[in-house]
Design a binder for these strands. Structure first.
Lengths: 353, 353
DNA sequence: TTGTAAGCGTTATCAC
DNA sequence: GTGATAACGCTTACAA
């Protein structure tokens, strides 16, 4: 019996080494540009690599070196333009640093999230970018127990045991409500998201703060639901049925806003003549010219980039021991969906100091 | 010297085996539900797995089994809603079959595509879903040389050496132009994409066919550019400067359409009173209610699903030896962006048989 | 500057 | 039903 080389199989370092008349480790050094290699040896090895059409096996490399150079982005729905931009920011930053990214959609289900986290752990993913589906630190804890660093995006979870990149939902919502108050609106309803999700809670908190500060009641005007279009439709239906009808609507998310607009149209009401609308999240940049909603735009792409930056720092032990919280600034864009309150009788509330 | 077990390190099959008093291979069988295992043994092993918090290492598994259970989707820009939906269809189908998906953006650059293909090859990706950046079969050839199956999406490349899932751009464009012809338009300009990209070429072909059939000239009315908003803007600028001005515009892609609309507005013209517009690709489903463009909608999500189906068949050797071409039906949606030609004097072209 | 030996964590193969 | 052994392709540690 003799060694039989099957040239139909994919070449390995061993094959290349044999062909170049060197040892496998020398081939490895050439591939990785590591250590000292003489020009002649390098040339021989590179020739052999070309002749055999050799492609290094990253799996084997990762197994040995304990680094997969793969990150994962777990989000609720990549189809939401907000998360699509974020994903693009993540991909660009990761790719520039030599990492590839796995994308996972949880559809706001903690079970799916849990399944993905376990899968990614098995795949030896170096780090995870997570938009948590729930409010519990469960996934973060599981990842920490396996020494896999996480950066939490968009939403906060308590207690804080990971770096976080997000925006200030409380403050931004406050600003949005002020836009309505300054135009004389006094009955303003808030269409909320899922209770427990930090962004949902914070946005309601910002609304409540602005209303209380203006001495206005919020009873019956706050309603909770899901971050979906159908939920937005239903929530809007129910607040539009109130008497007297609110003159301002605050949609806490882009999908909710779309549902709300549909409901307003279904009621035969006009925006902004009958009802003014403000919302969180802008339309995708490419559609910006058709936008008519007054919104708080969040820097999704930059959030993705920043999160990767923090994650890579952790992976390279360049991060401080304590967890960091990066709050990126939002951008208020006032458009045609807001107008003076129809019932404003000169009693327009002015901006506080 | 004795064997020292470091419990701070991640547990392996060996650790689990030791703890359960069985051999590593038995643990492997339990994990994979393969072969015969007695209930008692299985229980012991599962207990040990739980106690140690054992997580199998997929890298090692893949190295040995030659299956990474990972697919990759290479597209030009995930930020384009058309590709976002496609990505979601891919993710859902792949995930249901136990595969994870890597997403790669090439920004229409063949160099980036090439780099990604090599990277994915190194990562032992089981199969690739490719929206080719160029017209050459280069990437497909490279993948074939390494026995990695590919399914080409959206665009055709010649010669055909892979399964393809796409729509009929020629026929769909023809239908779109007929909408204009039937409303009396005679001067219709086409804003094309990059020459060489099959969808771009096919859409112009469909346009040309409809025009020729109606006995209308196309000279000076066809212009080529990129599938971007800025290119759409520039192309529209130049055709709107023609004299006599075209009364109908055909944008061969969603981004091109957005640029065209911006140019029309910049010229102080109204849609559809002065210019009617038809385009390829619908707005994202969630924004459908604000859509006013007459479009050909392509079933992006289903295209993604179907492509994964074909790819998995290849991976499981359930596919026929010849390459398959799946043409999915498109959907014509007539909306307010088209009207009667301003210069139509009763001479409206009627539909052919 | 280059090489030897060993092992990363898993599973294929064959044996009992 | 279960186990011993080797091997997947690469790189770390140590030598020369």
């Amino acid at each position: 019996m003799y060694n039989e080389i099957d040239y139909t199989l994919m070449a390995t370092v061993r094959d290349v080494a044999e062909r170049a008349g060197v040892s496998p480790i020398t081939v490895s050094r050439v591939i990785n540009n590591a250590g000292y290699i003489s020009g002649a040896t390098r040339a021989k090895v590179e020739a052999a690599i070309a002749e055999l059409g050799y492609v290094p096996n990253t799996l084997a490399r990762s197994l040995r070196s304990k680094r997969s150079h793969t990150l994962a982005f777990i989000t609720t729905d990549i189809t939401n333009p907000f998360f699509t931009s974020m994903a693009r920011g993540i991909e660009d930053a990761a790719s520039a640093a030599g990492y590839t990214v796995l994308f996972c959609n949880t559809d706001e289900s903690v079970e799916k999230e849990d399944r993905y986290v376990r899968l990614l752990l098995q795949k030896q993913t170096d780090g995870i970018l997570l938009v948590p589906a729930g409010s519990s630190p469960r996934s973060v804890d599981l990842l920490r127990s396996q020494d896999t660093p996480v950066v939490v995006l968009d939403r906060a979870i308590e207690p804080l045991k990971a770096d976080v990149v997000r925006c200030d939902s409380v403050r931004s919502s406050y600003d949005l409500i002020r836009v309505l108050l300054e135009r004389g609106h006094r009955r303003i309803a808030a269409l909320g998201g899922p209770v427990g999700i930090s962004t949902a809670d914070d946005r309601i908190a910002g609304y409540t703060h602005a209303m209380k500060e203006a001495g206005l009641p919020t009873r019956d005007l706050v309603i909770y639901g899901q971050f979906t279009e159908s939920s937005g439709f239903e929530m809007a239906q129910s607040v539009l049925a109130l008497s007297p009808r609110p003159t301002g609507l605050f949609a806490t998310n882009n999908f909710v806003a779309l549902g709300a607009i549909r409901a307003i149209e279904a009621h035969g009401l006009r925006i902004p003549q009958d009802v003014s609308v403000v919302a969180f999240d802008d339309v995708p940049p490419v559609l910006a010219q058709y936008a008519f909603l007054t919104v708080i735009a969040q820097p999704a792409y930059q959030m993705g980039q920043k999160a990767v930056e923090l994650l890579l720092q952790r992976l390279q032990d360049e991060a401080p021991p304590e967890y960091r919280q990066v709050i990126l600034p939002t951008h208020l864009i006032v458009r045609g969906s807001v107008g003076l309150a129809p019932d404003a009788r000169g009693s327009v509330v002015t901006a506080p100091k």
